[in-house]
């Protein structure tokens, strides 16, 4: 049994009253520790696919199991816990919470998990230090540069040591040099922590550097 198994997943959205089927009968297996890239044309449904896997969006139909456990049958609280404990998200924009400092942003998942407050902040600070952001810990997102923000966002995604990292064009808003730094970090995380990662990207060099490559087209996922 694969680490993540998707079976017959359907998802459509509605535009001007018309139904657009973005995922049609998608089935996919991802093994533990894999680093997968997903490419596709704009609007092909890459983000939707990632949201469905991350349980942020409910598919119309289909099955997904995670380590053999059926995910789509969970209720809201269980889904939230699943996202909190097993999934780390990184988005194209950093999506940090603007009212909170970098440190508080990184500690937030642990707080949501209701871990001890002091411990959560210690862990968050340690992680920021490892990422070379200790001096920016008490700054709010508005005062951070693009690359710094994205690294804080990555730290927030990783602070609870998720089993699955879902990255949606993490370097889309960054210049090539800064983007390369994020790529480096992603590969390190995959290698050192053994985190399984699915990375949606437009960046050809990043996609080529991944061990497994997928392409989303016409509602189906093909190996690329």
């Amino acid at each position: 049994m694969a680490f993540v198994e998707l079976r017959n997943v359907f998802k459509s959205y509605f535009l001007h009253g018309k139904r657009i089927d973005v995922l049609r009968d998608v089935s996919l297996d991802v093994e533990e520790g894999e680093l997968v890239s997903l490419v596709g044309a704009s609007g092909a449904g890459k983000s939707t696919f990632l949201h469905v896997v991350g349980t942020l969006d409910a598919p119309a139909a289909g099955h997904m199991t995670f380590r053999g456990r059926s995910v789509f049958d969970m209720n809201d609280a269980e889904l939230a816990e699943f996202r909190n404990r097993t999934i780390g998200f990184v988005f194209q924009s950093h999506f940090l919470l603007p009212e909170f400092t970098a440190l508080e942003n990184v500690a937030m998942p642990a707080l949501v998990r209701r871990e001890d407050r002091a411990q959560a902040f210690r862990d968050a600070r340690a992680l920021l230090e490892r990422m070379g952001l200790a001096h920016r810990a008490d700054h709010r997102p508005g005062e951070l540069s693009g690359g710094e923000s994205q690294r804080v966002a990555l730290a927030r995604a990783l602070v609870l040591r998720p089993a699955l990292l879902l990255a949606d064009e993490p370097t889309g808003n960054l210049d090539p040099a800064t983007g390369e730094g994020i790529h480096q970090l992603l590969r390190e995380v995959n290698r050192e922590l053994g985190v399984t990662a699915i990375v949606v990207t437009h960046n050809e060099s990043l996609a080529r550097s991944m061990p497994r490559r997928l392409r989303l087209e016409a509602g189906h996922v093909f190996p690329a």
Binding site: R83, N84, M108
Partner: peptide
């Protein structure tokens, strides 16, 4: 709205 979505992605349930 954006923050609410982010919090949900971080694992906050609807009740939260």
């Amino acid at each position: 709205r954006k923050e609410i979505s982010v919090l949900k992605a971080l694992g906050v349930p609807d009740g939260g």
